[in-house]
Design a protein around this nucleic acid. Structure first.
Lengths: 204, 204
DNA sequence: CTGTTTTCTTATCTTTTGTTAACGTTTTGT
DNA sequence: ACAAAACGTTAACAAAAGATAAGAAAACAG
């Protein structure tokens, strides 16, 4: 029984080792800080206005990030299986966040708290490796954002949509169009027009 | 004489300790990897198409980031004194970058090479702290980018410009408007119109 | 100092996007 | 199964932005 409990995160070890590979001993320590969390559809992983205390590693499901402006929800990002999800800036700065994370489907994730991270950074055996883990995570995110900023500066909404189709054709199948419109920085009506424009490419 | 040479980066120690504070011994090791670099106006710190091998810590001056699209330079970011500047994704991934960094004024920076970073990460005495240094740098950048992406998704060009005025009124004084227009994701002509709109706020 | 380049603005026209509302369809909750 | 809510498209109009060109002012180089 003890073995089973000790291994309850074992199935996801490889996923969590995306940035850093642990020895068995290190893994035992690391996984003792992990927790499971399940989100029902429409359930919020993390609400705006509070300090984000956990990062999540998505095992399955689909998450959207949104901010509220003038009473409207504006979707600015998505999380898929294997992604790290959190209101990262709030998590790091310990300031209330403005982003809400909401499950669009039944979602399963493994969570790691801020306090746990700090413990791990200071851990005599694991600290060095955890710092690296955190570094690679931050670097990875910065790279993703760098691309995303460039897409806004160098591409038209239509180009951004076409690129999204190329990259994530299957991925975005399950996501409502108006969320994707927000993600592209345009209105749902505008996206609908772009789609029409693309579908009938020629004809005089 | 030896003392002078050993201390040539001493004046900037505090700036470089923005993320992590070093002991004197650690600082001696760290600074041995640093180099000075001076850029004349219009000189490129790092050209697109090559792998970025250095990050720079700006002591003074002004740098713009740009990418070339359809033969036009599109400015997507700026670096100011005390900023870390680099084609970060290229630096990290060791792939050719698409961003060029160009000095807009006489610029002085302290550089740290990729090879040096890797050495430092592995350094028996400094590795732990350097990993933290790299982590905090990546995290900081990710936070900056998070804000920037949100500004594109939630704000109109006019709102973005107004916010830029609030934050960096003095900072952007020296930057040509058409670079700022690019930065905001619009054309120079459009920015000129926005400025006009803002200047004459009322009058029927 | 002088001629050239760069920068910013303005005007005109075209294209795109935002806004609002309507409509049919699909999904959802009960 | 049924009513309600959510979703995607379309239309009509207004607002904003892109493209291009022209001109004035400022910065720059020799």
């Amino acid at each position: 029984m003890g073995t089973l409990i000790d291994n309850k995160f074992g199935l996801y070890r490889q996923q969590l080792e995306a940035f850093v590979v642990f020895t068995d001993e290190e893994w035992q320590i690391f996984q003792s800080y992990l927790r499971f969390k399940n989100l029902r559809k429409k359930e919020h992983f993390f609400p705006a206005g509070k300090v984000c205390n956990d990062i999540g590693f998505m095992v399955s499901g689909l998450v959207r990030y949104f901010v509220v402006k003038d009473g409207n929800e504006i979707t600015n990002y998505f999380g898929f299986a294997n992604d790290m999800v959190s209101s990262y800036k709030s998590f790091l700065t310990r300031q209330p966040g403005i982003v809400t994370l909401e499950a669009l489907e039944e979602t399963e994730l493994i969570t790691l708290s801020y306090a746990a991270m700090q413990d791990l950074y200071k851990h005599p055996k694991l600290g060095y490796k955890m710092e690296r883990f955190g570094r690679l995570m931050g670097e990875y995110l910065a790279c993703c954002y760098e691309d995303r900023v460039l897409s806004f500066v160098t591409q038209s909404p239509e180009e951004r949509y076409l690129q999204l189709l190329q990259y994530g054709k299957n991925i975005i199948q399950n996501i409502p169009q108006h969320y994707i419109a927000n993600f592209l920085g345009i209105t749902p009506v505008s996206l609908s027009r772009i789609r029409k424009r693309i579908m009938e490419p020629v004809v005089k």
